[in-house]
Design a protein around this nucleic acid. Structure first.
Lengths: 349, 349
DNA sequence: TTGAAAGCGATACCAA
DNA sequence: TTGGTATCGCTTTCAA
């Protein structure tokens, strides 16, 4: 009824614990005689014995686990990344310990610590609050633990997979400007003003370079927040003719707000955003967005871990992925004569 | 440079390992003198010592980890569940080991085994292939490991959280029949014909009860598969006036197919599905769907685990959640005179 | 071919 | 108030 241990198997088979270990791990050119092998195997089957992975870890110093810290479980973008990591891990027969920072700096720090206390073979961290956990990160680096920082940092003494946000944002801005837009609003939906800073900054820079006035609406992180923010922006005068949104998740709310407001996309107003989550292809209209394949990003991060696991002395690498502008149906040329529509309320649950 | 151990701290502080353990775990009414306490604390800080969670686990028999097996990382539905589990776990200061079966029976079995080898405090399993891993499940039950089966089983000697699929499917069918639909197609998008069986069965039963001929299109599990399947169904004659889809993920592809085919929803054809994933509220039109709150489902499962952790002798409970029909904009009355539209190709990447 | 025993890093009992 | 040490379940060297 209790979980059987190696000793139980040994006792039942009438051999020593070492022998059990031998047959289970199929040591060098089966030293074990076929007869005892069978006896042990029978005992194993009878008891339903499985080696205790914790004990093995302690002994072997390895856990076959890689840890992944993501900022938020509500944003499909991070699932895509997680999916990439998981797929790669699965291939290498590693399991995935997943921690969400829930968009909170304290929880993020907590997550980093939880991961580093455990004897995890590799850590993949998607940090939102880069300096908050800095001491812990430095320690991990000092201890030479296999670690990949995804997204932000460009430190040189650690592996990083870096998505060039500034370049991506510039692409989006160039696209909108080229379409003739001048009133371009930015929906800045973040939980903390340290997040998404690079995208915001690139927006500001592009607006300034074009000699235009920035128009930023700060809001929360749900599609509903995006909905509200879009409504606010639509009421500004002059009304923006294009909206750049911090990510696709929010953009989905923004799209709906615009429709509910009585405008059409992209005839009256254009919308572009970031991440290229799967569903941006299925909303109506299909979303123009800037992104690199997120699940690829996860894969690359995982592969980097496995490379380092294989050769701990590899020089640190920093993979930069560049965002691609995926033009779909939510952006179009600036309208010639904007009209004044009725305001409507949001429907639905 | 190497990760410091308790012994390193003890040496540096000039105390025994036991003492280090005492100050770190703050044993009963600080037996330790303030002075040595400080010395130890200083050494801990200096070395950046963190207790090794694996070693603790081996000693304590507990890991502060709960394991979650989900069928598929590509379906947002399971993420919602995972989110519920993660949230609850986080509150209790437990971490989440996430394994995806990738819609494959062998991987599912593999996942169950990986989880049970590890000394995980509680297992939450969302099984798609119920008898495949049966022996392993029975063993877990025999060993009295905290275990919650989500979804399928109704075994009495194990905790289960059960979503009444049949009742949910009946709700959807009743809704469509009431709207006057007679040609109701079913988009059966599964990786394996053991999956989604209950939904399919309920559809068949309802069709039969209404004296109608079933019309099932079997396909894969991506929105794109749903798209293709819908196209097939639309070409049948008589063309179905309503489509019931195995889940929201596929329904999103179905919606797009219908639009591309040149029909309007729900004027020409109605669509209903299952799960109520977040995004079903943001597609166009909003999706009529049957679901219980998935993240609540995860929460309930996690709470069940924690209850059992607290009191291992609790009688086994079986929580049944009933699916709710959420009527939105993708279903409407049967059209009076169907027309013959142009066929179009799918656009977009 | 098999077994005894050291050791992975922690906790906690018992003694000092 | 502090320290020695058995123990958790396993792997692996060394000896038999």
């Amino acid at each position: 009824m209790k979980r059987p241990t190696q000793a139980d198997v040994a006792r039942l088979a009438g051999v020593s614990r070492a022998t059990v270990s031998y047959v289970i791990n199929g040591l060098q050119d089966n030293q074990v005689s076929e007869e005892t092998r069978q006896r042990v195997l029978k005992a194993v089957a009878e008891l339903g014995y499985q080696p205790d992975a914790m004990a093995q870890s302690l002994r072997l110093g390895t856990t076959n686990t890689i840890g992944l810290l993501i900022p938020d479980m509500d944003n499909p973008h991070y699932w895509h990344i997680a999916k990439g990591v998981e797929g790669e891990a699965q291939q290498q027969d590693y399991d995935l310990l997943l921690i969400s920072a829930s968009l909170d700096p304290d929880r993020e720090l907590h997550g980093v610590r939880a991961l580093s206390r455990r004897r995890i073979d590799g850590l993949i961290l998607i940090l939102s609050f880069i300096d908050y956990a800095n001491d812990d990160i430095r320690r991990l680096i000092r201890q030479k633990r296999p670690l990949v920082l995804v997204g932000g940092s460009s430190a040189r003494d650690v592996d990083t997979v870096y998505l060039n946000e500034v370049q991506g944002a510039s692409l989006a801005m160039a696209h909108l400007l080229e379409l003739g837009h001048k009133q371009i609003g930015f929906v800045y939906g973040v939980a903390h003003n340290q997040m998404g800073a690079r995208r915001l900054e690139a927006y500001h820079k592009a607006m300034q370079a074009a000699g235009l006035d920035p128009l930023v609406e700060h809001c929360g992180t749900t599609p509903e927040d995006g909905y509200q923010a879009a409504y606010s922006l639509l009421n500004r005068k002059p009304r923006p003719t294009a909206l750049l949104v911090i990510n696709d998740l929010l953009a989905i709310g923004v799209l709906r707000a615009i429709v509910d407001y009585g405008l059409s996309i992209p005839q009256d107003i254009s919308v572009a955003s970031f991440d290229d989550i799967n569903l941006s292809l299925y909303v109506n209209p299909r979303l123009t967005t800037v992104g690199a394949n997120a699940s690829t990003l996860g894969q690359v991060a995982a592969r980097t871990i496995f490379q380092r696991l294989q050769d701990p002395n590899l020089p640190h690498q920093s993979v930069e992925l560049s965002g691609e502008l995926i033009m779909r149906d939510s952006t179009g040329p600036v309208p010639t004569a904007p009209d004044r529509p009725q305001r409507r309320k949001m429907v639905g649950q």
